[in-house]
Simulated assay, not measured.
Amino acid sequence: MCTGKCSRCIAFTLYPLVLISIICNIVLFFPDGDVKYAADGNITEEVKYMGGLIGGGLMVLLPALYIHLTGTKGCCGNRCGMFLSIAFAAVGVLGGLYSLIVAALGLQNGPYCKVVGLTWMTPFKNNDQYLTEDTLWGLCLEPENIVSFNTGLFATLLATSCLEVILCGIQMVNGLFGCLCGTCINKEPL
């Protein structure tokens, strides 16, 4: 496969992952579909880090656009373009890793919620078994179903950021091949 076609394929795969990351991060700001929790500051701390919006979103979108432009003609334009795609893909790897770390912390610490006694806290912060024992989820009284809400969205962010890191890593290798070995040239019959 030509390195340009591979770049284009990677970019087209990154676009939906970027969209999913951004949407998941925005939705995390509105537990139970209500804006009052974000307005009052009663949302999970890891949501405020915006790993899906900044890391898995913008920091991967810019490299995806450049990687797409690198392979627009079906074959890469030049070696310099492939070299620059390595640098852009490295930015994508960093963004994906940031999103991955924030999502992993969000899953590890659990949600910020109102518990018995009507205090807001992170009740599962020191309990790494809450993910497997759904009977503990009843500790969170408000927002309703916050544990499953956070778990589902942070797990989705974790999966998409893993894929983004892998794809940007593949583009780094692809860019290296395109830079060292040259680009493929379509030969027209005489």
Rank of each mutant, 00 (worst) to 15 (best):
F154E: 05
K187T: 13
E144W: 03
Y112D: 06
F177V: 11
V93K: 03
W137N: 03
L53Y: 11
L131D: 00
N126H: 14
P63V: 05
L105P: 01
G55D: 11
E45Y: 13
G152C: 00
T156D: 12
C140V: 03
E142I: 12
G81F: 03
T160P: 09
R79Y: 01
A103D: 12
I146G: 06
L176D: 01
E45R: 09
K114Q: 15
L107A: 11
N78R: 12
L131Q: 08
D134W: 00
G169S: 13
L69K: 08
L65H: 07
E144Q: 13
L65A: 13
L180Y: 07
N127L: 11
C168L: 02
V165R: 07
A103K: 05
C168M: 08
G175T: 02
Q108T: 11
I166C: 14
M59H: 02
K114V: 11
A159G: 15
E164M: 14
T160A: 15
L158F: 14
L100G: 11
V173I: 14
I170T: 10
C75Q: 01
C80N: 10
C113L: 11
N145R: 13
L94R: 00
C80K: 14
N150L: 03
L139G: 00
L69P: 01
V93P: 02
S85P: 00
M121Y: 00
N42W: 05
V115Y: 03
L53C: 10
V115I: 14
L141H: 06
I166F: 14
C75I: 02
G182M: 06
V93Q: 06
G57R: 03
M172S: 07
G81M: 09
G182W: 04
K73C: 07
N109M: 08
I170L: 15
E133Q: 14
D128M: 08
R79G: 14
G56C: 09
K73H: 12
L65Y: 08
L153H: 04
C140P: 01
L158E: 12
F149R: 07
V47P: 08
C75P: 01
G52K: 04
V147K: 09
L153R: 09
G106H: 03
P123C: 12
T156R: 03
L100N: 15
L163C: 15
Y112T: 10
C140M: 05
I67A: 09
Y49S: 13
P111F: 04
Q129G: 07
L157Q: 12
M59V: 00
T44N: 15
M59Q: 09
S85C: 08
V173M: 08
A155V: 04
E188C: 09
A90K: 00
L53R: 01
A103I: 03
P123Q: 10
M50Y: 09
G152W: 01
I67F: 07
M59A: 15
L62Q: 02
L62P: 00
T183Q: 15
Q171G: 01
A155N: 12
P111C: 10
I67L: 04
G138Q: 14
L53F: 15
F149T: 02
